[in-house]
Each structure stands twice: as C-alpha cells, then as structure tokens.
Write a protein that binds this DNA or RNA. Structure first.
Lengths: 198, 198
DNA sequence: ACTGTCAAGATACGGCCCGTATCTTACGGA
DNA sequence: TCCGTAAGATACGGGCCGTATCTTGACAGT
C-alpha cells in the first residue's frame, strides 16, 4: 500500500514494525477500534501479512503486549508484608492500565472459546504476578518468620491478583482505597486466621 | 418480513416477542452470534423496531436477561454461615451460567464506556447478590451471635460476589472446589480475623 | 362509523470490516 | 546467478452495522 520508495522489509524488522503499528492503533482507537485493515495500513503492509502471523485480532494484540511488557519489574522490599502487598497491587494496577479495561475484556472474550489460548494469556501475563506473590512477597514474609509454607494455598496465592483483576474489569481502575481495603480487610485477615502473624 | 397473515403487534406484546427472540438467538448462537438482524428476522419484525427500543445489542440483551431473571431466589437457611455461603455461591454460579461467560464479558465491555450504564448493570444484577449477602446471610449470622455489624465492611460484603464473578469471567464456570476454597480459605478466615466466630 | 396519529413493518442504502484468493515482485541464500 | 519464499497489492463475496424512507395497520377520540 504505502512505503513506495522504501525497501521491502522481512522477518523480525517487519514484525516489530507491525507490532508498533498495532500499539499505535490500539492507543489511538482503543480495542474496539483496532482493526486488521487499520493496522495493515498504518504499518505500510497488507492484511495477508498479518494473517500469516496471527489469525485473530486478539492474538495479534497479545503478541504486541507481550512485546511491550517483557518482564515484570520486581516489587520493592518494604520490610513488611503489608507494604509489599500494597506495592504489588500498585504494580498490578499499572500493568493493567497499560492494557486497558476494554482490551482485557476483549482478550478474555476471545480466549473464552479456547482453553489452550487461555493458558497462554493467563500463564503469560497473570501468572507473572501470581508467581511474584509467591516467590517474592510470601517468601520474604516466610523468611521474616511471619508465615509458614503450610499456611499458604493455591487460592491464597491467587487472591491478590484475582481481586485486583476483578476490580479492574469492573471499574477500569483500581483506586487507592480499593488497594488498602483489599489488603487490610481481606488478604491480611485471611492470612492471620490461618496462623500468620502479619 | 415474516408473519404474513398475522395481525400487527404493538406495545408490550411486541416487546415480549422480541425479547423471546433475543433469548432464542442468544441461546443458539451465543453472544457473538447475536445480531440485530437475526433478532429482527426471528421475531418477525425489522431492525428499526429494535433500534427504537435499544440502541445497542448489549442494551437489548440486558433487557432480555432482566426479563428472564426477575428475582433472585432466596438462599436456604442451612444453620451455619459456611453452609449459607456455599449455597449463595451456588446460586451465583447458576445465575451466571444462564448468562454465560461471553455475554458477561460483552456486557462489561459495552458498559465500560458508560459509567451510568454500569450502574444499571451492576446495580440490577450484581447488587442483588451483594444485598443477599448482607441482608440474609450475614444477618442470620449476626442473629446467631457469630458476627457483629461492626465487623463488616463494604469490601467484605462484596467479597463473595467479587470472587465468584472473577472465577466465572476467567473460566466460564465455578467448580465445587473453587466454591469451597473461596469459602474456607478466604471468606471465613477473613471474617474470623476480624473477631467473628464462624 | 370516520378520521387523524403514531408506530409497525418492509426495504434499501452506504459503509466498514471481515477473511481469503490471486498475482506480481523483491529479498536473500545457495 | 538462480530459485524459493514471503512481502505486498488488489479484489472479492459476505455479514452486519445503523439509518432513511415509505407504506400500512392499529388504536383513540369524536
């Protein structure tokens, strides 16, 4: 289409240019306004080039986001479980804000038909946070002697991320008040009742 | 379009026939397959008739669901907070299953642009369950002397519904295991840590 | 019974985007 | 240099959108 004088791109250079265009379109028009045609035009390429790589818009967007949010930044060691947890939820909020409410809902929608795709999505983005809960925050707390391994369950590991996600899917944002009430009224009490001294 | 010999419907009779058609289309084709054109054809009417009532597909579906799920059945009194809570989550699961994962995501998507519409959706369907938590389950528990009013917070009232919704939005279903782990590892412990004897 | 009003119902339209098929053309490796 | 492969352009049928227009039936008031 465009790029008349330029040389023909291939491989990774092309792919990055496309993902760049995906992000630009997504940022300007939002998830609903994101179209294959628009991306192709913006990237100076054509639809078949996109469909050779991704078969749906969401798949493409997931690739784009995975490319933009490579690694989760670590959570600072605040010295207390409460502080760490607040910091984690803040990180979660920022990561979700980058994606946006509509896009998250859209991804879940696409992925709801295909359990395998769900694994990719949840395993890739959400589990990163869940793992951080377990491998960083709770581990620090165990080392401080506040928790024991046995007091933790898979459900408790998921809990912070689940509540943050729910809040974000409903309201498109996570207020400071939401963060503190989640931590102080749910997470910490649930741990205490299992014997933790947090 | 169709209904050649029949008399022309008006008002409520027409409206109910349309909502019937919405439900039929939705059940057969799912949320993504639901279209204004399809509904119009199935109801034996035409698109303008639909657009005179609802401006979007979701708005129409919400009206349909509100019509189909009028009142929440009450939760049986099992004699214990744990039993009541399990029963509530089971009711929540059934209500959500009727709607379906994709439709719930779709509704949230449409509603994400319009805070006012969100109030309608959440206030109408979700709050029904939240109110049941407060006005039925917790109240019974308070009467049994297990809880006091002061131990409850808005966040704790929302908690059961929030966790159920999150589970359903992610997986499209709420397993028995999910129900019990939510109750036994999160909700009850969180209450106990605040002084409840449940 | 007559008539005016209003919504039902039918149809058609431009538009957007989908997903794919086809063809030419450039790149890059052997 | 030649050849395979993928880029890039284009065109297509199709579906659904949302709206404008028109006719016709139902109902109410007199």
């Amino acid at each position: 289409m465009q790029r008349k004088g330029a040389s023909r791109r291939r491989g990774e250079a092309l792919e990055l240019a496309i993902l760049e265009a995906v992000w630009a379109e997504f940022s300007e028009l939002g998830y609903l306004g994101l179209t294959m045609e628009g991306v192709a035009k913006r990237a100076g390429t054509s639809k078949p080039v996109l469909y050779r790589r991704w078969s749906t818009k969401v798949e493409m967007l997931i690739a784009c986001i995975a490319n933009r949010i490579p690694q989760a930044e670590s959570v600072p060691d605040t010295g207390s479980l409460r502080g760490d947890m607040v910091a984690l939820l803040t990180v979660a909020r920022e990561r979700m804000s980058v994606i946006g409410q509509t896009a998250m809902l859209g991804m879940l929608t696409e992925v709801s038909k295909d359990p395998e795709a769900r694994e990719v999505l949840l395993g890739g983005l959400a589990n990163e946070l869940v793992n951080m809960v377990y491998q960083v925050i709770y581990r620090r707390s165990i080392e401080r002697g506040e928790l024991t391994e046995e007091q933790l369950t898979p459900r408790l590991l998921r809990l912070p991320t689940d509540l943050a996600r729910n809040e974000f899917l409903l309201f498109g944002t996570i207020s400071d008040e939401a963060v503190t009430s989640i931590v102080d009224e749910v997470i910490l009490p649930a741990l205490r009742a299992r014997g933790a001294s947090v």
